[in-house]
Design a binder for these strands. Sequence first.
DNA 1: TTCATTGACTTGTACGTATAAATAGGCTAG
DNA 2: CTAGCCTATTTATACGTACAAGTCAATGAA
Lengths: 365, 365
Amino acid sequence: MEKKYEVVINALLKEMQDGAYSVDAKLPTELALMSQFQVSRHTVRKALADLEGRGYVYRIQGGGSYVADWQKNCQQRDTGQNVAVLTTHISDYIFPAIISGIEETLTAQGTSLLLGSTQNDPERERQSLVQYLNSNIQGLIIEPTKSALGLKNQDLYQQFLDRKIPVITINAKTSLPKVPYFVMDDFGAGKLATKKLLDLGHQQLLGIFKTDDQQGIDRMNGFNRAIQETQTAIDIQLITYQTENVQTQMFERLSRILATKDARPTGIIAYNDQIAMTAYNLATKYDLKVPQDLSIVGFDNSLLSHSLGVQLVSAIHPQAQMGRDVAALMIKMIAEPTRNYAQFAKTYAPELSAGESVAAYQPKK
Amino acid sequence: MEKKYEVVINALLKEMQDGAYSVDAKLPTELALMSQFQVSRHTVRKALADLEGRGYVYRIQGGGSYVADWQKNCQQRDTGQNVAVLTTHISDYIFPAIISGIEETLTAQGTSLLLGSTQNDPERERQSLVQYLNSNIQGLIIEPTKSALGLKNQDLYQQFLDRKIPVITINAKTSLPKVPYFVMDDFGAGKLATKKLLDLGHQQLLGIFKTDDQQGIDRMNGFNRAIQETQTAIDIQLITYQTENVQTQMFERLSRILATKDARPTGIIAYNDQIAMTAYNLATKYDLKVPQDLSIVGFDNSLLSHSLGVQLVSAIHPQAQMGRDVAALMIKMIAEPTRNYAQFAKTYAPELSAGESVAAYQPKK
DNA sequence: TTCATTGACTTGTACGTATAAATAGGCTAG
DNA sequence: CTAGCCTATTTATACGTACAAGTCAATGAA
């Protein structure tokens, strides 16, 4: 049942919002309101006190009660929820889709999205996190930088948790409790992709992996595991590189390998679709046909994988779906912060997309 | 003289600030406080009500009064600057790069970025704008929805201006004064792209344009102008479509045209790289070689344009640079809001990227 | 005319009382 | 040992009274 003082409050609020009173207009006296609503002075005063606390009216002892500039004081209250999303990159392959998925779900819930990127630099990550700590956000979704080298700004992560601000990581696990993570099973994906080529009879494989994020490490380990588990002898080449030296470490070495005729691999497991695409273009340049002469498997099933001359076989990354899942969990965590959400962490099972960049091994004539 | 309820308030505040109570610790009951301070229940309640209104305590009916997390509620006011960025899409072709450019510049200035997307739906745009009006942002960067059909939510745009919140539009001009815009010269780009094919001797052209945003209209007008200005007789086909019916209106008609042998165009001007890519893939399917049998020009110089079998000739969209320029201007506008910044609007001159998807017309044998 | 006084009016502080509603803890029955 | 019930505690709503303190306008004296 609606309480008496609420009746008074709502009646006054309605009049104000309908424009019956202009700013600084005088409201009826307490005595008048008492008889108008047939309530005691106490009740009228409680209603007015409440409205004053919320910034709708101001009162002058001995003078009267007046309507405040509530449009300014009350509406502009920053009531909406904000969730910060901090990824390593914004415009690179899968990130737009993830961010888009997060945005879609958050916006549907009336929650705003604060976006930042770290360029995979722990120092930038630190700056952004400090900034977010000083602004009012209700949640943090973060893809940690240089995840293979251990969590860099753990102290700041902890500060969010201390303030009861829920944190979710994507593309990396953390050792922090109460921080659910959303990751691809990169190990499994690496294993699956490699197994695909092994099953097709390939015996000379090239793996290209980035080693400064956990994703790359996991995919490489999956690659190695698949090879260990096979019975036949496999000829392996490995290119590893880090973010800073894609060009020197990766591109040139890959060119050299593809240029050789003897020990040339018949199958490539590329760290991601971008690298796979580079390999594809290089192969075309050296007159190697994909998949007849060279099979290529990529990762992430990005837009790129659809736009090559052949449809690229790629380990499917959930992308937008992951974004939607993350955002949905975040909304739950904000609504009910007390529970432990660690169990809601999700590892997406690996799967290969259909495509034409892979074929059974054909011995060279 | 200090009022009795002020005595109670100050005593409790002091204890809390001295750390006598931790967060969520239970305060003495009203009865206990009555005897402690020798005041009536009314006075105790007024003191507690005041503290509750100021965010220092919370009360549970039947449970008791508890100290709130006042360090969070009372001290930390959010000081940082926020700029909202509202685009039609987030993950599609050029938007990630634009957003990334904006983010880069804003973050460097310690300004946060609130991201939203409208899916080119004026109703969604409206919801997001209302949300931004209710949160504290210092600037708005927006790509208006359905820009060809006129500005839909002009009243809301005006509300931002009324509140002295600077607004910048991208990819579309507005009739509003004091709103600078950042656009490609789409008319010029359309003309330039078309001229390129005409100069190479093509006489049978197909234009594919989206007609529900200003970009599409402008590019199409540029296309038409280039043809009007040429001296020779040109055979023209046009496919127009809207966001909702890419598949039915565009894809099927394009397939039909490429399948015909007689009136098949020798050059295609595609609304953007995505359409150009679709055309390329369709052409390959019908055994047409690009550029020997068919020249294709795209727009936006997106990632896609680099990943086809041939490097796509595309009208260069500044993308990340536009994002950086927009953000830099926004920061100026926030710092000095009084000036008129309309003159800082920027139109990027058209330019074609180098590529191999275009060749001189060769009469069929 | 000007200024201080006065008194009616209005809001603020403070106490008293009664009842309602929610919670917490103890008890009992199963 | 648990689920449900009961009771005491505690806060919430609501009425009443009295007086303090500030505002405002009318009155009256300088």
